[in-house]
Design a protein around this nucleic acid. Structure first.
Lengths: 334, 334
DNA sequence: ATTAATGATGTAATCCATTACATGAAAGGA
DNA sequence: TCCTTTCATGTAATGGATTACATCATTAAT
């Protein structure tokens, strides 16, 4: 593998001059430029980024930490991140944490060892103090999920009002007994969506009861299980269900259909996220759409600003969500 | 940021000794070891990987090139790759090429600039010669799609026999007019699946006609469009359809159902890949399952072997696929 | 013609860690 | 006691680029 030395020797100039040519420094004569370029061509020289990076102390790498890439919701966000990253000469190191804290810490070493210049957390597993501590030393942005008071930038949507709006819509359709399929975790989105759900019920004068909430794990099967639980209480099955993920909503619909119920005829279901499959299912899912790609883009922009030192104080950005009305919701018939 | 020099100074030893401690070299006395460790602790020293990598000329990074991460089929493979990579201390650089050759080349620079030690191609966009040339210099593995005669290792499934088996299954159900939803590209999988489809028809004494093949782009909507084309020829609609992707199969089913047909009552549909959503749809999709995670694992193992120099000749690995019979296929009723 | 300014290029330090080789001390052997 | 090993540690070169500073030649200014 040829080095800059080899090029210099071949072109009969010093390494400094070769470096100038590579980096398009203006103070290189036409003649020399050509000589050097020719030597580069002939040797098929490619600058070794390891050397350059060490000298410049930059790597143009950023960490993207997410629970799992197999979740289409996250993969779309990654696309947004990647787009902005590329436009700015950055590459992303993808890190599936599987929501395991050791794995997350393992990946964070890449930040501490200066192999990456910043990190975007989709759903941090480490606790708030650890995150705060980290952000004191390195550029960090949270995307979607975030921790309040962590003094770390984030970009997300207003989960409270999104849930409120979704439930309000169901109420508007005449539903009085509205169940929720949530998850058992402490994500801010989970907490806020539950609050929004409750508030919407209260504001409409409907009774709220913990009994109306079943928990899953965001997945299809857990949606089925939750629906079964609703069906279990014979005479008191909700006429509408608000699920905090599309996959769970689809699972619930599946279960209802299998039990001879019509969706939305007998029961309405609303999801969250608007993953690709939401509009593929039969019935197509009414859901809250998050601007996934933009969430990713904004997160990356924010991170870049931090890396460049353009901003020092943490910033919070809320993007617009949208209630997308499709086929899985309808007027209450009872 | 403290460097190894700072640690050495603080511990009153040379940098060589500190390096030995960091790298667990056996020839360090108990006393010195403790002194150094304490200095490391106190300074919160983390070795700068840029320096280390330059010296060792290693980066423990590999490139994973795929058309798009949003395709769940690919994201599962990535999981497999990541698993094995991590187990071996490697990290992956994810590269969405969007099937654009310039983007792919852009990413390949990371290989040529020695920032990554190898690459796994999911569906190369560059041509065979370029790929061959590349593989002469760098460790490279193809996963799923591959180019014959490129003299590059690959791990995949036998697409010909998988398609053959799928169509044979439909024939066994009594279907005589079987359509195919394919794609317009030159992927080996596309070609071989078409061959398998043809051969199965021929072996059963059924007529093949180009007219029976509609093309899409692997996506849901293109499946709908293809199905519409089948429905267009009124009196000659197939009684079964073999799609080369699950999303297209689901799209087709959606279209058939919207046109008042029952699946599988009136028409059977079979997909390919067994993505997560295949078993979520209603009806659940009969499909050919590819061992996605293992494909990824094997590809990474193969790449590691190349990086380590354990193998020099390209190797081909074929993993087992499986025909998964679910709800979208049934006996032919005409 | 002399000096100052400008432009092109080179020399050498630097980024940070690893490691071949050298050195000195302690231990073992004759 | 003297020589050879062995062990622990240090010195300095190394990996490949960037860049501050120095140098020299040329051009412009007086």
């Amino acid at each position: 593998m040829p080095t800059i030395q080899d090029v210099a020797r071949k072109a009969g100039v010093s390494v400094a001059t070769v470096s100038r040519v590579i980096n398009n420094s203006p103070s290189v004569s036409e003649t020399t430029y050509r000589k050097v370029m020719q030597a580069i061509e002939e040797l098929d020289y490619k600058p070794n980024l390891l050397g350059r990076n060490l000298r410049r102390t930059e790597t143009r790498m950023i960490l993207v930490l997410l629970p799992t890439i197999s979740n289409p919701f996250y993969s779309k966000i990654v696309k947004g991140i990647e787009r902005v990253a590329r436009e700015n000469g950055y590459n992303i190191l993808l890190c599936n944490t599987d929501s395991r804290v050791e794995t997350e810490r393992e990946y964070l070493k890449l930040l501490k060892n200066r192999l990456s210049e910043g990190a975007i957390f989709m759903a941090p597993v480490i606790d708030r103090d650890e995150l705060s501590e980290l952000s004191r030393k390195y550029p960090i942005v949270q995307c979607c999920e975030y921790m309040e008071e962590a003094h770390v930038s984030y970009v997300t949507i207003d989960n409270f009002s999104a849930a409120y709006k979704a439930v309000q819509y169901l109420i508007g359709l005449g539903h009085k007994r509205i169940g929720m399929i949530s998850c058992k975790n402490n994500y801010i989105s989970t907490i806020q969506r539950k609050e929004g759900y409750k508030k919407a019920l209260e504001d409409a004068g409907l009774v709220f009861s913990e009994d109306l909430i079943k928990v899953g794990n965001y997945g299809f099967k857990s949606g089925i299980r939750a629906a079964k639980q609703f069906l279990a209480k014979k005479d008191n099955v909700p006429t509408a269900v608000f699920a905090i993920s599309d996959s769970m909503a689809i699972g619930a619909i599946r279960c209802f259909k299998e039990n001879g119920m019509k969706v939305p005829g007998d029961i309405s279901v609303i999801g969250f996220d608007d993953i690709t499959y939401a509009s593929m299912y039969d019935p197509m899912l009414t859901t809250v759409s998050q601007p996934q790609v933009e969430l990713g883009c904004e997160a990356m922009e924010l991170l870049l600003a931090q890396i460049r030192g353009d901003i020092k104080e943490p910033k919070s950005i809320f993007l617009d969500y949208e209630l997308i009305i499709r086929e899985s919701t309808g007027l209450c018939k009872v």
